[in-house]
Design a protein around this nucleic acid. Sequence first.
DNA 1: CGTACGTTTGACCAAACTCAACAATAGTGG
DNA 2: CCACTATTGTTGAGTTTGGTCAAACGTACG
Lengths: 223, 223
Amino acid sequence: MSVQAQLFNTCVAQIGIVRSYALKSEIIHEEDAADRIYEVISGAVCTYRMLKEGRRQIADFYFSGDIFGLEAAEKHILAAEAVTDSNVRIAKKQALNVLISRDAKIADQLLSLTARELSRKQDQALLLSRSAEERVICFLIEMSKRISPKDYLVALPMTRQHIADYLGLTIETISRILHDLERRGAIKIKGYRSIALRNQFVEGRAEELPDLFEGIKGQSLTS
Amino acid sequence: MSVQAQLFNTCVAQIGIVRSYALKSEIIHEEDAADRIYEVISGAVCTYRMLKEGRRQIADFYFSGDIFGLEAAEKHILAAEAVTDSNVRIAKKQALNVLISRDAKIADQLLSLTARELSRKQDQALLLSRSAEERVICFLIEMSKRISPKDYLVALPMTRQHIADYLGLTIETISRILHDLERRGAIKIKGYRSIALRNQFVEGRAEELPDLFEGIKGQSLTS
DNA sequence: CGTACGTTTGACCAAACTCAACAATAGTGG
DNA sequence: CCACTATTGTTGAGTTTGGTCAAACGTACG
């Protein structure tokens, strides 16, 4: 995501301060003023919202180099917590605006970052109206791309509960689907925190596994 | 949505051309180059993506004054069609960039529009992981706010099929839920294309209707 | 090495989907 | 202005998917 935004990150680095957050600690409270933006220096962070019945809906995960807090609004509508021990750089939007007014390229990168985030949200929204299995598969592909783009072994920093809250499913369903995918030879589960995608050497072993894993590192599931 | 973007719309008006589209005609093909932005002058438009099995997923609806096509990317990942006969102004992003470089306020509005769209997408993503009934209720509230903010009678330009494709449900489910809401006194269905929200005079008639319709014109369903 | 936490598994249940027949609407031409 | 028809929406029965609850299990961390 933060592929080309180097200038922007450098720029945020000039005006922001770095803070450390322990596993599970809260980085943004829902309803906090939304006058800052955040860059993940190390670790993993998720943004979320609490629903009436105590359920939690995770809006997104952010990893090293990613920037979050771009959505508009006066107040944050999303809270954020550290999924693992993390370092996060925090910069005031106000200070950023000063830099923007000096260099139009920075404004341009900010816009393009926001537009890319919008595009990603589109994808996520589309994903959420698909079957449980498709959601899990897309999740694995996305995490693979974002966490270890070159490798087929994905080290997931989040728990099953995080995944469930992100995909709008239950942990039991996640568990069942992962094991079904493993049984069908598409993945190999290694402990609680990493999964090997076996797309490239699936051979004949994957029974009638739909071509879902076809372009695993390429396109998503749209026709 | 296009509340404060007057300057921006004016600006787009300077460089864009208006085209007419008949009901059901295609405005953007999936895979078209994404070098334009669009403003709905009259009518209603939806953006969507086709899924493998021939199902369609509607990403969003846009009404008079709304702007779409903001998401990044080289190619459009979303197609667009006219939900009713519509007039749409089309402007090249390139031409827009010229205006932006002359006036920073325009860049600012473009960013804020994109951020607001992002925020709306967040909401939509959250919505999609709720029950069918909640989705329908939120849909009605959102349409009420966007189509006729002052009125409790909502003239829906789209068919049940559009609604189903937007909410990730089937037309049968939409139909059943609407009729259930009517039975419980929350709405009144007037023909195929308009619905009266009876929130303000629900009185005692709405049995145990959850407080979903509580702040009908105000907040959404987050705790 | 032991414990706490996260995960798996199974039996059961409810929500939403499918298929199919039927009904209402709104647009058309007489 | 009415009757006709294509389109859109409704309703019911049966099935599927994913959720719930509860118990067992495994992992990772101290």
